[in-house]
Computed example of a mutant assay.
Amino acid sequence: MSKAAGENIGVGMVGHAFMGAVHSQAWRTVHRFFDVPYVPVLAALGGRDEVRAKAAAVRLGWAAVETDWRDLIAREDVGIVDICTPGDSHAEIAIAALAAGKHVLCEKPLANTVAEAEAMAEAARAASERGVRAMVAFNYRRVPALAHARRLVADGVLGEIRHVRAAYLQDWLSDAEAPMTWRLRKEFAGSGALGDLGAHIVDAAQFVTGEHITGVSALTQTFVRDRPEGEGRGEVTVDDCALFTARLSGGAVASFEATRYALGRKNAMRLEINGSRGSVAFDFESMNELSYFDGTDPGTESGFRRIVVTEPEHPYLSAWWPPGHGLGYEHTFTHEVADLLRAIGSGADPAPGFDDGLRVQRVLDAVSASAEDGSRWTPVPDTPVEGR
């Protein structure tokens, strides 16, 4: 599937709700700001309801509509398949797309079960040998401030990592009468706040530290057991919040919290890392900032320093605006597809790949097992990733 530099590459996207809209924005704009080897063409949008899909295609800029994802994969003008559906369909679509020789971008979490994630990772490894690439969409890796935090850790600025503190706080389900959604059904979503939000902070913690989680002790809670649905009420079959402690492969200890019931917190994805020489702290509600503490400063001048992450030397920012002009949520997806296109162009496997997604899935599975068994310590099986 190699193409000459600057040639068009067709994208087919399955799903057109929230994630479909933000992915569409990324595909429409990436080549206008980043030096990428291909110009993406929004070839086909997949949706089961033809009327809704056609309306979304007009609104989001897609040239055609397919009501069966199999037909979308089979199109000759589609070279990349972008999966923005609920987790229960990720494995089937991704494995079929890779077998058909199409590059794949798949939303997180990679799958609803470890078995599905293992099958997807195996398919991605086999496809890689044929020059076909697969990426899982952990967009927070592409927040410039978090990418800069990773640089600080990798450069040894923080010293030995001792503590990781991660939380993802939202409040959109706090109203017990908010209507039922697919995100509250296990058969579609796999889990609740754990997979929806916890997957992000697990990946962010592992990404920034360069380490992986080796074991967890967890508890989960469902606060509202049923919600309005149609003429009656539907049963909620997933967690509303998840809390767990963890150990990392380098010896650090960590805590994680994911909830959709934190009143007043709209999208507070937070990460703090404490090392032997310094600390960094991040909150997505101030996404263009990073707090840095230099432990070598004299006590009389010590304190957290506010870094405004908008300089052209910061990750991704040379493509955007003058210093001091902040980015938003949608830019992280543009960065994501830029990295995918560059990986395809260079013949390299992108990061995070499906093995990275599998690693996160194994953590989520261990959290669920620990919570079901009364918060016992649960080891996380390792996921060796070649070349990383």
Rank of each mutant, 00 (worst) to 15 (best):
A63D: 15
D35N: 01
D239L: 11
H90M: 13
Y316A: 01
V238G: 10
I80W: 01
V367C: 00
D175I: 07
D356P: 01
G46D: 07
A96D: 12
P352H: 02
V157S: 11
P298W: 03
S24Y: 07
V30M: 04
R247V: 06
W320A: 04
G232Y: 05
K102Q: 10
N112A: 07
D171T: 03
R130C: 06
W321M: 08
P144L: 11
A204C: 12
S346F: 02
D226S: 15
L327R: 14
V143T: 15
A97C: 14
G10R: 12
I344Q: 05
M120H: 12
A281S: 13
A55N: 11
L169Q: 02
V22I: 15
G299A: 12
M1Q: 06
K108Y: 12
I93G: 03
R305Y: 05
L327S: 09
D175T: 03
H148D: 03
E285H: 02
A189R: 05
V238C: 09
R59V: 00
T29L: 14
P144A: 15
T300A: 11
E92S: 12
L158Y: 10
E211M: 06
R48N: 13
M13S: 09
A121G: 09
C84W: 07
I273V: 14
D171A: 01
V114N: 06
W182H: 06
G357A: 05
A127N: 08
G215N: 09
W182G: 02
D356E: 15
F18V: 15
V81S: 07
R125C: 08
E118G: 00
A115V: 14
R130W: 03
H163C: 10
E313I: 11
E118H: 03
L169W: 01
R142W: 02
A111L: 05
D203G: 00
V202H: 02
N139A: 13
D294R: 13
A111V: 05
I93M: 11
E7V: 02
G278S: 01
S279G: 07
F282G: 11
R305H: 09
T29H: 08
E187R: 15
R227C: 01
A167T: 10
P379W: 00
D239Q: 13
H23D: 04
G275D: 12
M135L: 13
K108D: 08
F354C: 10
P381M: 04
H212Y: 08
L42R: 13
R233P: 00
P298H: 11
I9G: 00
H163N: 14
G345W: 02
F333Y: 14
A319E: 05
A43E: 12
L219W: 06
D49W: 10
A127P: 01
A246L: 09
S276W: 11
I93R: 09
